[in-house]
């Protein structure tokens, strides 16, 4: 996916022969996703050019287009995880305060796994102020006193 995107207009913009075709929409890839806006669960075929959504088919309502724009361009997810506290059960449950970019989930989980918070912890306490530099805090979702 990333490789194909590199052939978009920006990457080759300095070449004159590309400029000749610059008015043509460049469909660099198609993706199939399932819309989660409602129980209908439309199968969307999303056409992308330069990493932007240029066409969506298969949607039964406008929410499908909005979902495709979000999901194909800036997919985000809430992350919830556990931090074991030696000698204590249950483990500390935590979440990101807001959704983070989907491609940072793995890094985020590693950062959470490396965290060594000290007790007592109250629900809502910040465990990691800015996780993996995405500008989102990881907070506790339960008391562990």
């Amino acid at each position: 996916m990333m490789q194909r995107r590199a052939f978009g207009r920006h990457a080759l913009g300095h070449l004159s022969h590309v400029q000749l075709f610059s008015d043509y929409p460049m469909i660099t890839m198609k993706r199939e996703i399932t819309c989660i806006s409602c129980p209908l669960g439309c199968s969307l075929e999303v056409s992308l050019a330069d990493g932007q959504v240029v066409a969506v088919t298969g949607n039964e309502c406008p929410r499908g287009v909005a979902y495709a724009r979000q999901e194909c361009v800036h997919p985000e997810r809430m992350v919830t995880a556990l931090i074991p506290i030696p000698g204590r059960t249950p483990p500390l449950s935590v979440r990101t305060e807001r959704p983070i970019p989907k491609n940072r989930i793995s890094d985020c989980l590693c950062a959470i796994a490396a965290a060594r918070p000290t007790l007592p912890i109250r629900i809502g306490d910040v465990i990691i102020p800015d996780v993996v530099g995405v500008g989102v805090a990881v907070i506790a979702t339960r008391d562990l006193l």
Binding site: M78, P90, S93, R95, I123, T141
Partner: peptide, 25 residues
Amino acid sequence: LRQCIHTGFGLHIFKEELTGPEYAA
């Protein structure tokens, strides 16, 4: 709710996406 540490709770009542323990709390 104590063991449902994922989010998705409270969207209707609190208009927020909470985890189970937070909703219960």
